[in-house]
């Protein structure tokens, strides 16, 4: 079964932002927005939920600090105590550089893995592309025609009025996840 989507293509970020705001105000449900670069101010206009990625980063980092300190303490005081330069077995200042590096390592590796998983990015991910020009010079507002099939004409008219340079209907084999589903 094919999934049908209506794309309003804009040639710049300013009309895109205006259109997203007006369309939502008029009660249209925007399925997704595709842009060639991060458009500042789009998230609140679109009603996108805030990302929790940085919180995950903090948790990974804290795990790293705890792991490094605990491991070094266990190794240096319990598993194989050794005197280096007359210092105590547990010499915290000497552990700080490694604890710091492991914190950064855990935080960044953990965050990047989370980022790839949540965004469904991998070498094997070959998603169907709605509109190749959205990675070049087009900004697309996507509507799910499964929902708005009867209103396609009205939508097209509204998009063109708001400055869309082109309106397209695309049939896809894969269902495109909406921005809310991507946030969930």
């Amino acid at each position: 079964m094919a999934y049908r989507y209506l794309l309003g293509l804009f040639d710049d970020e300013v009309p895109l932002l205006d259109a997203v705001g007006k369309l939502r105000h008029d009660g249209w449900h925007i399925h997704d927005v595709l842009t060639p670069f991060p458009v500042h101010g789009l998230d609140p206009v679109l009603g996108l939920k805030e990302t929790r990625l940085h919180t995950a980063g903090f948790v990974f980092g804290a795990t790293g600090t705890a792991f490094a300190l605990l491991a070094m303490t266990y190794i240096s005081t319990v598993d194989w105590p050794n005197v280096f330069g007359g210092k105590p077995y547990f010499s915290l200042p000497a552990f700080i550089p490694i604890a710091f590096e492991v914190t950064v390592l855990f935080a960044s590796v953990g965050m990047v893995i989370t980022y790839y998983l949540r965004n469904r990015l991998s070498v094997f991910a070959h998603p169907e592309i709605l509109e190749p020009r959205t990675s070049n010079d087009r900004f697309a507002i996507v509507f799910d025609l499964g929902k708005y099939n009867d209103d396609a004409g009205k939508l097209e008219e509204a998009l063109l009025r708001m400055g869309a340079v082109e309106v397209k209907v695309r049939e896809m084999n894969q269902r495109q996840r909406s921005h809310n589903e991507q946030s969930a």
Binding site: L34, P38, L42, L46, A125, T134
Partner: peptide, 23 residues
């Protein structure tokens, strides 16, 4: 990696760029 450039992907992209820069 199958990048699509959706609003959500860009939001996370900005978040991870900033945090990785901070780290």
């Amino acid at each position: 990696f199958g990048w699509r450039g959706t609003a959500k992907q860009w939001q996370r992209f900005e978040s991870i760029s900033l945090v990785l820069a901070g780290l």
